[in-house]
Nucleic acid binder design. Sequence first.
DNA 1: CATGAATGAGCTTTCATTCAT
DNA 2: TATGAATGAAAGCTCATTCAT
Lengths: 206, 206, 206, 206
Amino acid sequence: MAPVKTEPRKRPKQSRSRVLYDALIEATGRLLASEGVAAVTTARVAELAGVSIGSLYQYFPSREALIAAVIDAKLERDMQELVPILDGLRLVALDQAVRGLVEVAVRYYRDETPLYREMVAALAAVDREAHVRRLLEGFDKVIVVVLEPHRAALHDGFERSAWIMREMLISCVRAAAREHPETLADGYLAARLEAMCRGLLGLDAA
Amino acid sequence: MAPVKTEPRKRPKQSRSRVLYDALIEATGRLLASEGVAAVTTARVAELAGVSIGSLYQYFPSREALIAAVIDAKLERDMQELVPILDGLRLVALDQAVRGLVEVAVRYYRDETPLYREMVAALAAVDREAHVRRLLEGFDKVIVVVLEPHRAALHDGFERSAWIMREMLISCVRAAAREHPETLADGYLAARLEAMCRGLLGLDAA
Amino acid sequence: MAPVKTEPRKRPKQSRSRVLYDALIEATGRLLASEGVAAVTTARVAELAGVSIGSLYQYFPSREALIAAVIDAKLERDMQELVPILDGLRLVALDQAVRGLVEVAVRYYRDETPLYREMVAALAAVDREAHVRRLLEGFDKVIVVVLEPHRAALHDGFERSAWIMREMLISCVRAAAREHPETLADGYLAARLEAMCRGLLGLDAA
Amino acid sequence: MAPVKTEPRKRPKQSRSRVLYDALIEATGRLLASEGVAAVTTARVAELAGVSIGSLYQYFPSREALIAAVIDAKLERDMQELVPILDGLRLVALDQAVRGLVEVAVRYYRDETPLYREMVAALAAVDREAHVRRLLEGFDKVIVVVLEPHRAALHDGFERSAWIMREMLISCVRAAAREHPETLADGYLAARLEAMCRGLLGLDAA
DNA sequence: CATGAATGAGCTTTCATTCAT
DNA sequence: TATGAATGAAAGCTCATTCAT
């Protein structure tokens, strides 16, 4: 993987520029979600954003930077939304905490599947794997923090299972959105995920 | 994504043709696994296979068809390997059956990660989603078949959970290979996966 | 080569404008000498000069005009330096006059090679050949003027040889700077050039 | 100057390919001579050669390689023509040898000026300086070889002057072609060049 | 006047695909 | 049938130039 410049050229804070910048990110995200990484060409992005290619390159030094920016923006926004919700779960009982984690996963990933899938696909083309890994580990830490208060009730070293829980939740919700969307709405998926979490953590069936 | 012909032109069963055909598929697979979808150019495939581009196009109507064929071949081979193993699990006790399913997943996906990842990335470019879905449903059916004999011990409609189990197993093993490879070897992952399966199926902790 | 406007928009003689104008010319010259014609982009020139592109275009109607102005400025400055020196040579003996011309050439072109080379390269892109020709003819005239007092000792029509002398001196000094720089310092080149001049003028070996 | 691939991709020895290859080189040379380095764009070269860009890149890995190939081809051809002529000069008297060198220079460079000028300009863009330097040193050696038989009549270390002679001859003939073409035909230039050579070598006026 | 964001023509290069040999 | 030379659409990116602020 050749080293490609992925740092945005400027972080415009003012009016008109900001609009342009956002339009480019949004256009890229739209293309990414609807037609996949391959469809993200500089020309199409610029066109969809109603911007000239020249302007695109004023803000992003490369196609890769554009994609990277979309991913970063998305993940940042996600974290901002998720963190407070997850923080709230630290105060509740264990059963509720587990159910809460499952619910967040279901509610949250339900609609974002296409963009997320393409983002993951894009990660190979962009040099963002490390970055995303760090973010996933962020999720893991959140899980640990939520379960921490109940350490006594959990098997030793339950922290080692956090990544499994994260991966299981995310991938199952994605698969559900793809293959069995009805289970997202009717509670079936949530119930099964909860049961799996309990199993993972060594808790009795609810 | 424009509709692209993905059907091989011929399925040569004989002699020299068959050798060429196989060489092309193998070359494509190698490139896919080692350098990613983008590296799969018709020229490189042909060269690596020791075949002229002209000949390549005699067997595959497009680059897409080539990739599709690799995926198909891989999945077909997988099924041929897996089916007998899974069939054997129909004869054992429930606990053993669950453990067996987990072990198969761990053992099987452990080493295939790079090719699988690229195959998934390639799916976007190729119109193979439906096809793959069918194959995944094949996995699901196998799971059902393995658990069928123990229907009495399982909750009603346990069949509805098969896809969850399949998705969980595959994605967690992949994630392990990527992020925590040591857990593949030391049995930790297998133990946790088994616990999750039991949770999913509503069984007591082992 | 399309006809490009190369005339500066204004020749500001006053205050702040003059500073900007000069800064632009100097920046261009620096880039030209250090990184070659291709590196002379309007953006880099403006940046190096600490001026906005907009302002650059206030003074120069095109990139070409900028380069042309550098060449003109350089040649003009050269002439201003050289003329008095050469004028002084009118008063000395023939042998000394010839040696003086050689010394001027050696001393003068020794250090300017990179800028000169790039200027020559730039001439193709700019429509300055005629202009430069006029300047070279200026050199020729100076040579004639220096030798004039010794007309009696020189062959008839020695004026016809002036351009040859100028060309020989300049190109040999340039080549020396490029290929054999040590001969510039140790006097070897000067001695040989002098001998060639004497040969050219029909004088005996010194 | 970034390192650019300049090696031709294939050296086609057969019929059709060879035609293409030559057409590309010739087209490049034409553009180089008539409109300068900047005019040598892959698109124009391909068009002028009546070839698709794709084919161009089948033979040359980059624009630079194309230019490099032109330079190499030109110089190679020159050497093939010149070497036998210069070799013949080894057998004649000193006076004749000097005159012969001058005549070769005059005759030879008379018509090639535009291409040569652009080639020199192109050298900056292509990483061929070293290569050309070697060729120029080839000229120098030829001069030494021609004068060698008369070593007794020449000042010690006349070899050190070879590059001066070469540079002087080439540049003066070029300047003549540019500025005073009539002197190429009427013998005036040749006479002056000969006188300069004699001066350089420390010989009496002829 | 000064600024620099915006423009878009145009450049180099790649690669899937065709088709004459 | 097999070959691989030839094709050209399309991609990423630069940079001279304009013009609203």
